[in-house]
Every structure is written in structure tokens, then in C-alpha cells.
Design a protein around this nucleic acid. Structure first.
Lengths: 187, 187
DNA sequence: CCCCCCATGTAACATGTTACATGATTGA
DNA sequence: TCAATCATGTAACATGTTACATGGGGGG
């Protein structure tokens, strides 16, 4: 079974915010840190049509500019459900394996669901999983300390400190979210 | 033009250390942090044969166990040159774009060349490039501060602190390498 | 005897890259 | 009028994933 690709999730999340044309999405990928994903037409347009075939979104032709029609893609009910299930599902180890970028993408989109608890739960898991990962790398590093060349050990150190940085960030982000939802809750 | 894939560089770097069979390489990918690269036979064996076709390595049949022959791959002169040119070439922005994992892979393999200056130059560039990247994200973040939702801003913060973490690591690693080459130089 | 490890492979498939193509519109 | 931008697409290609296949050897 082939699961939904990272690019597909990026597209679904954007369309969850608001319907857009393929071109508009390309611009976003071109001009923001999301640009990490390919903005090439050869990636975007086929991916959109695949998602349409899966029934997650539907393109309608916008003729407001009669002379320049464009496809505006919008999530179907099924698509909305898919995105929201994804965002609500607890963070898993296999999502971590897809790479931290993917996990942070999920976190970014999670703000679209007005549910502060959700993000806090996510961040708590994220913190736990990154600390575990740091520990695993550290254990590995110590187990091979004697045979591993210096450069390899330094690279492992890098990995450990990156994971710890993620964990620290999660802690801070939780505080920020608590403060902001506190404000929102009181108002 | 298609450039050499990350997996291919991972293979070349391993074979630069010492000749191995495809199976041995799979084991390494399976049991070390390099396992980030696919250890599936469907990835490894075709990649090795592609590199062989490009003349970067050559497989010879090892019959030391008559009943269990295996292909031992070894870099050709051309392959050694390719690896060493890669490792000696200054770190570029486009290598950074391939992802930090790739860059760290390069650093790890760089220890195979007995040239402490090389790694120091690499780390200096790496530090510079990561700090620049952090600054770019920060500038972007500030430029959109008013329109970007909270989660997006937090995700950007994560990116900034990750880049800074890389830069800090580079600084520390330079000191470690200076100390160790100092020791080695004196002895 | 059965299962796991050694060791290599292939086929179908999904995805993404590069490069090219089309045609209208807007602004200098 | 010329270039850039809007807007969408396709074709060839490279790479990787998943799953399956093959066979011998060693240990319980």
C-alpha cells in the first residue's frame, strides 16, 4: 500500500485553508518556506489530479475572468475528513520517520482546527519522541565510541543536539500556546 | 542533467572506506543511523549496478566461500576521484538544499581524507551557511508576522533554532578537531 | 526438520525532475 | 513590440518502494 505523500499532505493542508488554483499553490511553494516542496508544474498538477481521482478534492473552472479560466480546487467532504483525521490523529513514530519537516508541516496545519488541546497533545508527544530519539542516538554513539572515527561521532553529536533542540522548542511552544489559549479562553 | 543521488553518495562513501558486498552495505544501513537510507534490495542492488555502469566501481566475485559467492564492490580510480573531489569541494548552497542529512553525511565521510584543514574549512562554511539560513527564515518570519497564524510562526521559530543549533555544533566541532589535530600534530 | 540468515535479484508501481510546449495578458 | 507573468499541461527519465522469488547453509 502506498500512503499519501508529503507533497499531497502539503496540498491538502493548503486547500483546507482555502480553495486555490494550482498556479496559486505553486506561487506559495515558490515564495515561502513551504518551497521546500517542489513548485514545478510537473509535480503539482499531476498530484492534484491524483487527489481528485481519489475523491479528496474537486476542481471547478473559474470563469470570473472569462479570458483566463482557471481550475479552483476545493476539498470534498471526504477530503476535509481526511485532513482533519490526519491532524487529529496522535503523532506516531512512523510519521517521525518521514522526517521532521513533515511533522512540522502537520503542526503548522493543526492551527486550522480551533482546538488548543490538540496542539498541546501533539507537542507533548513530539517532545517525548524527540527525546527518545536523542537517547537512542546517544546510546548508539556510546556503544560504538571505541570503533567509530571522530567525524562520525561528531555527526552523531549533531543529531543528538538537533533532537534536543526540537524537544526544547516543543516545551517553549507549549507555553506559548497555553498563554495564548488562556487569553482567548478568558476573553 | 541528473546528478548523483544521496543514496549513491552514501554507497560511494562506504566503499571508499573499504570494499563490501551489497549485503554488507544493507546490514550497515539496517543497523546504524545511516539506515535513514533505504536498506531494501530493490534500492541497493540497482544503485550499485548503475554506479558500476558509470565506471565508478567494479564488482568482483569473491569465491573464498566456494559455495556462497558474493559480489565485492570496490571503487575504481575514477570512483575514488569522484568521492575525493566531492569531499574536497567547498560546501555549496545547493548541497545545503539537498538537506542537512546529506551535508552531515559528507562531513562524516570527510574524516577518511587525512586532512584536518579540510574539515575545518567545511565546518566554517557550514556555520556561515546555517547562520545565513537562520537569518533568512527570521527575516521572513518578521515580514509576515502580522498575517501568519501562531502555529506557522512557531514552526518558523523551530527552523531558526535548528539552524542555530547546527551553527553552534559547527563551532564546537571545530574546537574538537583543532584540539585533536593539535595532539596529532605534536606527536 | 524447520526456520532464520546469507546473498542476490526482479517486476510493478508511485512519485518526482527536467525540459519543453502552449497561448493569452499586462506593462514598459 | 518585447518581455514577463498568468495558467496549465505533457513526455522522458531517474529513483525509490513494496512485494515476491530463489537457493544454500547453519543451528536448535
Amino acid at each position: 500500500m502506498y500512503s499519501i505523500s508529503s507533497l499531497a499532505y502539503a496540498l491538502l493542508g493548503l486547500l483546507h485553508q482555502h480553495p486555490s488554483s494550482g498556479y496559486a499553490i505553486r506561487k506559495i511553494f515558490d515564495t515561502t518556506p513551504l518551497g521546500h516542496y517542489s513548485s514545478s508544474p510537473g509535480a503539482i498538477y499531476p498530484a492534484l489530479r491524483r487527489l481528485e481521482q481519489q475523491g479528496l478534492l474537486r476542481g471547478i473552472v473559474d470563469r470570473s475572468n472569462e479570458l483566463r479560466p482557471k481550475q479552483i480546487y476545493r476539498l470534498t467532504r471526504k477530503g476535509v475528513a481526511a485532513v482533519e483525521n490526519w491532524l487529529r490523529a496522535p503523532l506516531t513514530a512512523s510519521e517521525m520517520d518521514r522526517g521532521l519537516d513533515f511533522v512540522l508541516l502537520k503542526f503548522s496545519y493543526m492551527g486550522q482546527l480551533e482546538d488548543p488541546k490538540l496542539a498541546l497533545r501533539f507537542l507533548a508527544s513530539f517532545r517525548k519522541l524527540t527525546l527518545e530519539a536523542a537517547r537512542r542516538v546517544k546510546n548508539y554513539s556510546e556503544s560504538v565510541k571505541l570503533v567509530m572515527p571522530l567525524h562520525g561521532r561528531l555527526a552523531l553529536e549533531n543529531g543528538i543536539s538537533q533532537y534536543r533542540g526540537h524537544a526544547r522548542w516543543a516545551g517553549k511552544a507549549m507555553k506559548v500556546l497555553e498563554a495564548s489559549s488562556g487569553k482567548r479562553g478568558k476573553s
